[in-house]
């Protein structure tokens, strides 16, 4: 109420009544503004998540229904090599995709940050543009390129090579993951590199450090938060993906995402599917906690 004291005309000492009114209007404001959104999120976000959590302790009956008796069998089943292997291979594929995206994305982001202002905007928009196009269409493009009679094979055939089976292996899955999420790596890296004071690098060079040494001791440590964020942005959607392994990996259950989809849509085993979803979430939460911890240290 600074305005009233300045103008003077309406300056009235705050009575107990007006304070009560203020408190009431805050309560009304809270109800009007926070109420609808939070109610929506409680019903359609928190309750669903709680349901996933609670289904993990039940088991499936013979007809695809749920037996509401507490049991720990879903969690022991998780340790079955059949499923554990899928989780491990998902971790592996998502990690490889993340590392490749980092190795490709870092130099690209570094160079974009050094470009003149006008080109910088164009280069950044060009990085984001594919990300705003339909995800399935981008995955489909790789089928056209890589499938048996596809374009890469016919080009190689003209050279007297092949044909090769490019599709339906782990390499194609990784390619699809990197292709889909590379923009999410480049953006945070760019933001971190852009903030870097160029004088620090100049100082390092003036003190006799070679470019490689400057990079390792100055540039990389200072852009590490961007590296961590970019890696998370690529790893999280890769780890839980089921479309890319399905379309480019040949439809077998090779990643957790496929396994979860199958539990819900084919096996109709909601309790075990929920347990797998919880496992997926647990891995991601551990990673987020690690990131928060590293951010606090930095």
């Amino acid at each position: 109420m600074t305005g009233s004291t300045v103008s003077g005309a309406t300056a009235v000492p705050r009575s107990r009544r007006s304070r009560a009114l203020g408190r009431r209007s805050r309560a009304i404001g809270r109800l009007v503004f926070l109420g609808p959104g939070l109610a929506y999120l409680i019903v359609l976000l928190l309750v669903p998540l709680a349901l996933i959590l609670s289904y993990t302790v039940f088991r499936r009956d013979r007809f695809g229904g749920v037996v509401y008796e507490a049991t720990g069998e879903n969690f022991t089943r998780l340790l079955d090599p059949l499923y554990l292997d899928v989780i491990v291979s998902s971790l592996k594929l998502a990690t490889i995709a993340t590392v490749i995206a980092l190795l490709v994305g870092y130099p690209t982001a570094y160079l974009i940050a050094q470009l003149p202002r006008k080109w910088k905007t164009i280069a950044l928009v060009a990085i984001v543009l594919p990300f705003w196009t339909n995800f399935l269409v981008r995955v489909y493009a790789w089928i056209v390129l890589l499938s048996g009679p596809g374009l890469v094979n016919s080009a190689l055939g003209d050279l007297g090579l092949g044909p090769f089976e490019f599709l339906y292996n782990q390499g194609t899955i990784v390619t699809g993951l990197v292709y889909s999420y590379l923009p999410l790596m480049v953006l945070p890296l760019y933001a971190a590199i852009e903030k870097l004071d160029p004088q620090l690098r100049e100082a390092s060079a003036n003190l006799g450090a070679r470019p490689a040494r400057t990079f390792v001791s100055v540039t990389l440590p200072l852009t590490l938060p961007g590296v961590v964020t970019g890696c998370l942005f690529v790893f999280v959607p890769s780890f839980g993906n089921f479309v890319i392994p399905e379309l480019l990996g040949g439809g077998r259950s090779i990643m957790v995402g496929n396994l979860i989809r199958d539990q819900f849509l084919k096996a109709r085993d909601w309790p075990f599917g929920s347990t797998l979803t919880l496992a997926l979430l647990a891995v991601l939460i551990v990673l987020l906690l690690l990131q928060a911890w590293s951010a606090r240290r930095a």
Partner: peptide
């Protein structure tokens, strides 16, 4: 992750 939200809502 979109899959987690999708599963949650399907179950709900």
């Amino acid at each position: 992750p979109d899959l987690v939200l999708a599963i949650g809502l399907l179950v709900f």
